[in-house]
Write a protein that binds this DNA or RNA. Structure first.
Lengths: 185, 185
DNA sequence: TAAGGTAGAGAACGAGCGTTCTCCAGCACA
DNA sequence: TGTGCTGGAGAACGCTCGTTCTCTACCTTA
């Protein structure tokens, strides 16, 4: 017997994977149901429709990405290396063949114009990443504009790592970020 | 009387505007036909279906954006200012309320997984922008990694200018690019 | 004026979507 | 054993999509 909690988890995992890989509108509720091994009835009793599911998937992914990145950050020796660690996470993540860039940028591109809720989640994530980088950069004693710059490098590398199917942009961004930290020491 | 060439132009203009504003899958051929003032029959005799239309719209936009950016570049005094001019173009463009970021990143997010043709056009555009920046940076005598960095700043600023609905990221990216140019002089 | 061809308006079609509903197998319990 | 109930499988519904087809009105030309 599977509890509702387990079923929810399976649906969210499948939805996250499929939405990210194929974009939300390309994944039907039927495919989702099959992948998660859940009846359509249960699917709709667990979630208030596809829109709500998309929103919850994004919230969940925001937490997961933050946790995954923090694993890289905490093992860094210096405050400067902590900042650079986010690019190591990116380089490693982009090594997987199913890397498709930033799920939030992608969702905003696809659903932003039609869903205010998706837009809100995306803005929340971007503001969170920017804040996290700002905190790490502040710990190194550099001015805030350095954090803004590193954040933009991070964002640009996320999209172009996906488009070029290469971790090269992640490494280039890391190099640029290190240069900024060095020259503002 | 309107010629086929004029009708084509009207369709492409409407498609570009609507696809960019709402994303491609959110715009139906019927809405497109109405907006362009063209019969459905003519629409399908001018273009081989929606996929081909999306592809052509992107190619056309690539040329238009290149031309628009070049207007900013050519009026710059120094080679360094030419590089920075692309951020001025971005700051000005993002001032319009209908700015939605990079159409190519957006299209890749939405259609990349399902359309190899769209992916090809997007890669072509990214490689073109990267090459153009590389040429301008090379003219200033800086090493290529500076160009890579400025390109990533540009890309990150494009997406975040749209998401935050503010030209601030464009200005931040310009500042970072200028810093990179100064410190590598 | 009459005939033939063109082109536009929009009906029609098949497919796929999100969502709901029906049906029935399997269970708990008297 | 009989009776109600729960939940799963998937049929069904209404809608919209991309695409094609039909019909009619009009223009051209003899």
């Amino acid at each position: 017997m599977t509890t509702d909690t387990e079923a929810r988890e399976r649906v969210l995992e499948a939805a996250d994977r499929l939405f990210y890989a194929k974009s939300a509108h390309a994944v039907g509720m039927d495919e989702l149901r099959t992948e998660a091994g859940v009846s359509l009835k249960k699917l709709y009793q667990l979630f208030d429709g596809k829109d709500a599911l998309v929103e919850e998937v994004l919230r969940r992914r925001e937490e997961a990405i933050t946790a995954a990145t923090m694993k890289y950050v905490v093992r860094a020796a210096s405050p400067e290396d902590q900042v650079l660690a986010v690019f190591d996470w990116m380089a490693d993540s982009s090594g997987t063949t199913d890397f498709r860039g930033c799920a939030f940028i992608n969702s905003y591109a696809e659903l932003g114009p039609s869903s205010e809720r998706v837009t809100a989640v995306v803005r929340h994530q971007k503001s969170g990443v920017r804040g996290a980088i700002a905190a790490m950069v502040a710990a190194t004693g550099r001015p805030e504009w350095v954090a803004d710059s590193i954040f933009l490098l991070f964002e640009g590398a996320m999209t172009n790592t996906a488009i070029t199917v290469s971790s090269e942009p992640a490494r280039q961004a890391r190099k640029a970020a290190r240069f900024l930290l060095e020259k503002t020491a």
